[in-house]
Nucleic acid binder design. Sequence first.
RNA 1: GGGGUCGUAGUUCAGUUGGUUAGAACGCCAGCCUGUCACGUUGGAGGUCGCGGGUUCGAGCCCCGUCGGCCCCGCCA
Length: 607
Amino acid sequence: MLDTLGELERTHTCGELRIGDVGQKVVLMGWVAKKRDFGPLTFIDLRDRDGITQVVLNEADTSGAHAKAKGLRGEFVIAVKGKTVEREGTHNPKLATGDIEVHADEILILNEAKVPPFQLEVAGNENLADESARLKYRYLDLRRAEMQNNIRTRAKVVTAIREYMDGAGFTEIETPILLKSTPEGARDFIVPSRIHAGKFFALPQSPQILKQLTMIAGFDKYYQIARCFRDEDLRADRQPEFTQLDVEMSFTNREQVYRLMQGTFNHVYKKFDIELPEAWPRMTHAEAIRRYGSDKPDLRFEMELIDLSGDLADTDFGPFAEALKANGTIKCIVVKGRADYSRKQTDELQEFVKRYGAGALAWIKLGDETTSSLLKVLGEEKIAQLAATAAAEKGDAVLIVAGRKSVVAASLGALRLEVAKRENLIPENVYKPLIVTEFPLFEYNDAEDHYDAAHHPFTAPMDEDLEQFREAVEGDKRELLGGVRAKAYDAVINGIEVAGGSIRIHQRDVQALNFKAIGLTQEKARERFGFFLEALEYGTPPHGGFAAGIERTLMALLHNDNIRDLIAFPKTASAQDLMMDSPGEVDEAQLKELGIKTFTRETRSIH
RNA sequence: GGGGUCGUAGUUCAGUUGGUUAGAACGCCAGCCUGUCACGUUGGAGGUCGCGGGUUCGAGCCCCGUCGGCCCCGCCA
């Protein structure tokens, strides 16, 4: 028979009591984390959201409570009435409450619990249960201190953001979750409507257009903690639904947005006693790609990419010569002190870069003797020259990739991170923020042989590139589009893209150019976002803003590389919820009402 | 859409070249124990080796398919 709570109120949490509380009568409530039974003496680790307090039951003092404790099992929910005393034996420095313990004279069993499907308290994360078990029993996983900390840190971050935005004069405005599908960008989640059977709403990929409309509406400074939805494949840092700080302001320029982005992050980080520089370092997109092979460089370590194409301009080695002839490049990174890389290891690294489209990974090892996969084709002298250009020293390994510029950047950029992880080159508890500027306005789409908007189609070009932009579109020199830079920027911390944004186009003729560049006809554009184009014609102020990923901000802050750990109820890599078992089927009647027929996986391709 | 990797007790894992009764630790259950905090100690229970098919005298191990977790490419700011 369970006890009832009645009028009993708890006096403290399980993480609160200190040596100064000795002598106090207290009431604690929580879960049984652990029981250590010595016969006449029993210890219980009582856990709640705040920590763990040791409860002691001595048969000699309170035989009733002691006897009752015999029946306690892990995760039972209990209330304990007792007295705070200084520990008799050794204090426990691992617990915040480790100097005291509570001598219980009464225990109430408020609820029992089945044996959990996995152990909540285990030493070391490597012994933690498989993630699918943790996801199925998410409510149990969330009881663990680490997860409690993650979720509560998240709340603290969001609170800090609201505090800062409010202080800076921004108005929080909610925008609809039920929107209209727009064909470009990510795939939409669509929502049927009974009232409009056969028609669909779409969930927002982001409130982009709506936040621009708040500028046209004259709110001047808008922000929102907005849920975003994208029906795309997942990654360790991507979930189908995630949360953004969405910000937009009027009468602004890039410098003002940079200051606001920095200010926001600096304010948030300060809550965790982390000082970021008031003005973050900056780097253009082109420089980031050139030096780090990435538009979100991790600046916690060096190992920059070095260009070897100058030294190899006259080479007749097939793969290199072809790469250079096709306007490609040859670059390398230097791994300090790893001339001892084995054949197996370089093979592994070669397999790694091949994922990014690299044909091969060439290497030079400056050991006691210099060895190289290129020795036969280039000769000793050239090898020595390349090593010198790379500034490699005795004992180092040089890893080289040749090919298209984008492939060399992607593969070496990724290799740089991979090697840094393997070699433990990334310092812990260091935060290296960066603002990446001047992103390209357009991205060449290989598969369809045309240019897409790199950010979104309302991003303004840089004033300096407006001329070239006009020429590219009106003079029909499409190849010039690749060189047009945008007033677009990202905020990066430790190689994680935590925010991104742009100054928007507010002039009709530039917007028209932009649509033409990406092959969107007047009619198509009107069809897709006519309401927005119309709005632009009623006095749109110059405006711009950014969006910051809440989960990514937390990943950077907590040095966590799994986005699921930062969302209370996340989905798996295949976009399922293992706890609710969603998505699920619905009744035939429901579908009928909505005017929807479904097809199975097998019949879908036949239609 | 493609690639990699994992799937054995409640959990984390081991399991030789295919060989007889599939192991360990933690957890769980029962006993003992008055200062533990990864308590100790004695004993015990617990297995559709993800699922289906195949090869074989014999499959946890080999082959084919399939399902699921994780990671990556494509995709996605």
